[in-house]
Design a binder for these strands. Structure first.
Length: 376
RNA sequence: GGGCAGUUACCAAAGUGGCCAACUGGGGCUGACUGUAACUCAGCUGUCUUUCGACUUCGGAGGUUCGAAUCCUUCACUGCCCA
């Protein structure tokens, strides 16, 4: 993997760059649609490529390990061959499941003991076997196994959690450096900053992560229950330390506003389930604000879904029709909403990139921000 | 014409003297969702009120009772069966 910094904004820390992988080039800042179980829910890869213009998608180590399982993935020749997505893939390590499935797991020094949410069976994830699994999945970018610390964790817990993540990182890196990709292309490994909402911990973690000298770095443990302002503050502290010539990935974030704030603070990569999950639940993000498509007010609004939208669904369908599809629980509703939302997210980061290159990012962002949160 | 069963909120359907503005579904409305256990979850759904609470309801009318959706009388309507 290679990162080229193309432009750095003069009035902010925003940057535009290029990440080159063996599966293609990614223009940053970028948003990465989440495809947990080898599928971006409700969206075909054809639409993802041609209409949404996704450049890289996510997969999830924990979920793919449980199903379809490593035997199938290896027989298929890796995830790219299995699902047919021939562009870059990033896999999360399962660190988020340490957080989200906290009722089903026990943390120990060696790793995390999970009970499968599917059948209750017992599994052990360690920093080492999570690398091995991601070798089999064949992600272009694999993530370190960390503990995603809850946003409301007390200081002592956050400190211990961060230290565990750091120890796990050393072990993961050792395994990564001792192994190679199985399918003829190269893989890279991003370590993850933790430290919850505590500036000194974040600083300490960022320094530790930066000192590992990897090809890219991630910021984790944000947007997990802490106030949004705290999140922005932590990003600033961390990005002060993380190297400028490496991509920075803010994990799991977020709303359109979160993303612009992140870009302004020097983040290059984002992923989030919001455009797809919230889309399936009837929520549309647009350049003019947010719409809940189940609301009665759209009942007889026969104007296009999003007159400023760039995806074909925006012009092809009306608000009244999409509302009808949601009220009727038609599957097409979820497809349309997911395509729209992802296309909007990719449009948003594409615009940000263009304005960074043009030199007017801050002014553009100032104009966009109030509109993005408006409820239509 | 006779017999039996029934009539409860938007729909369906519990409740058979006070704990009933009334269980539960559905429908409807509103909200939540941030490295996806999520086509999920939560709240509201007689009227007024932010809450407390007040008021009006259980086919219609009348009655019994301290008190009725619940008991009695009667009327209307619906379904099934017999003629």
């Amino acid at each position: 993997m290679n990162f080229t910094l193309q432009h750095t904004d003069k009035q902010s820390n925003a940057r535009a760059g290029l990440i080159t992988t063996d599966h293609g080039v990614i223009e940053t800042p970028i948003f990465m649609p989440v495809g947990t179980v080898a599928s971006v829910k409700a969206v075909h890869f054809h639409e993802l490529k041609e209409d949404i213009k996704a450049q890289i998608i996510l997969g999830n180590t924990y979920h793919l390990y449980l199903r379809p399982g490593l035997t199938i993935l290896e027989q298929a020749g890796g995830l790219h061959k299995f699902n047919g997505w021939d562009r870059p893939i990033l896999t999360d390590s399962g660190g988020y499941q340490v957080f989200s499935l906290s009722g089903n797991r026990k943390l120990k020094e060696e790793g995390a003991h999970f009970r499968s949410h599917i059948d209750g069976s017992k599994h052990l994830f360690t920093p080492e076997n999570v690398v091995d699994i991601q070798r089999i999945i064949g992600a272009d970018i694999m993530m370190a196994f960390d503990e995603c610390t809850p946003g409301d964790a007390p200081y002592d817990y956050a400190k211990k959690s961060m230290e565990l993540t750091h120890r796990w990182l050393k072990r993961g890196l050792e395994r990564f450096d001792a192994t190679t990709g199985k399918y003829g292309y190269s893989q890279t490994f991003f370590p993850i900053v933790q430290g919850c909402v505590y500036p000194d911990l974040r600083k300490q973690s960022a320094e530790f992560i930066a000192s590992q000298g990897r090809e890219g770095n991630a910021i984790g443990g944000l947007a997990v229950g802490e106030p949004t302002e705290k999140m922005y503050e932590m990003i600033e502290i961390v990005n002060e330390i993380l190297p400028k010539d490496k991509p920075r990935y803010l994990m799991g974030v977020g709303t359109p506003q979160n993303i612009l704030e992140g870009i302004e603070r020097g983040v290059d990569m984002f992923d989030c389930v919001m455009p797809t999950r919230n889309g399936r639940n009837g929520m549309l993000f647009t350049s003019q604000g947010i719409m809940n498509m189940r609301n009665e007010k759209w009942k007889n609004d026969f104007t296009p879904l999003d007159e400023f939208g760039t995806s074909y669904v925006d012009q092809a369908y009306t608000k009244a029709y999409l509302r009808h599809l949601f009220i009727s629980q038609e599957l097409l509703a979820m497809q349309i909403a997911s395509i729209h939302n992802l296309a909007f997210y990719l449009w948003l980061v594409g615009q940000a990139r263009n304005h960074i290159i043009a030199g007017d990012f801050v002014a553009w962002k100032r104009e966009m921000m109030p509109r993005l949160g408006r409820r239509l």
